[in-house]
Computed example of a mutant assay.
Amino acid sequence: MQKIAITEASAKQLADYAETVLGIEGVDYRLGKAKIEEKMRATMYDKDYIEVPDEEAPIQRIDPPVTPGARRMATIFIMNTDKAGGTEPVPVAVNGRQMFIPRNQEATVPWEYYHALNNAKSFSYRQGPNGELIYPPAEIHEYPFSLIREDPAPVVEKAA
């Protein structure tokens, strides 16, 4: 594998990297470098380079190394739904910063976005035979998802 600066990479290299390594669907080199880079940044890709394979080596998915003090992440899978927009990426905002999480594929997101998504719930009330509401209501996620992996919480040492 060799590293290439995003500014020096071709649109084809960026599109291949975005689709194979970052898992972004529908990326075509004909979109142009600026649009592809925009899609990469929307998935929180913050490096200024990409890794391209040598002639013979196939592209492999890169899992970021876990280092102490690194940002806590979670890997989730958001399912499609039969509601309007149920196949579109899910917008999740934390402290005024929004990201769009793709559906029907594994997505690694910062832990705070997973936490916000997990808290997005509605209440569903059932009715009894006389039309009265039956308590407690069922809590339902607005965007059904599965948690695949979650980084452990950082250990905070107490001062003696």
Rank of each mutant, 00 (worst) to 15 (best):
Y114K: 09
P91A: 05
T43L: 11
A84S: 10
E150P: 00
G86L: 09
E132A: 12
G85L: 09
E56N: 11
Y17S: 00
A160S: 12
G85M: 07
P65S: 02
N130M: 08
P152C: 02
P64F: 10
L133Y: 12
I6F: 05
R41I: 02
F123H: 10
E150K: 13
D151R: 05
A93N: 07
F100D: 08
V92M: 01
Q60T: 15
E88L: 14
A93G: 07
E25G: 14
P102W: 03
D151Y: 06
E106M: 13
Q60P: 00
E51D: 03
E88V: 11
A15C: 04
E38S: 15
V109F: 08
D46M: 10
E106Q: 13
R97S: 12
T81K: 08
L133A: 08
Y17K: 07
E51G: 05
T108C: 04
E150D: 11
D48M: 06
E106P: 03
V90M: 01
A18H: 02
E139P: 03
G26W: 00
Y45W: 09
R126Y: 10
R71K: 13
V52M: 12
S122G: 13
P64H: 06
G85V: 07
F100P: 00
I101S: 01
N104K: 09
M73Y: 05
E88Q: 14
E139K: 12
D28R: 15
I78G: 03
I4R: 11
P91L: 02
E56Y: 01
M79Q: 07
E37T: 15
E150I: 13
E51S: 10
F77R: 10
D63E: 14
V92F: 02
E51H: 06
R72T: 14
K39E: 09
A74S: 15
Y143D: 11
Q60E: 14
T87H: 04
E38G: 07
E106T: 06
K12C: 00
A70F: 01
G96D: 00
Q13R: 00
W111H: 15
K3C: 01
K47Q: 14
E19F: 09
K158R: 12
N118D: 13
L14G: 08
A159L: 13
I134T: 04
G86V: 11
T87L: 02
Y113E: 04
K39T: 02
N80A: 09
G86I: 14
Y17A: 03
K83V: 08
Q98T: 15
I101P: 01
P136D: 07
G69E: 09
G128S: 07
D16A: 05
L147R: 05
I6K: 08
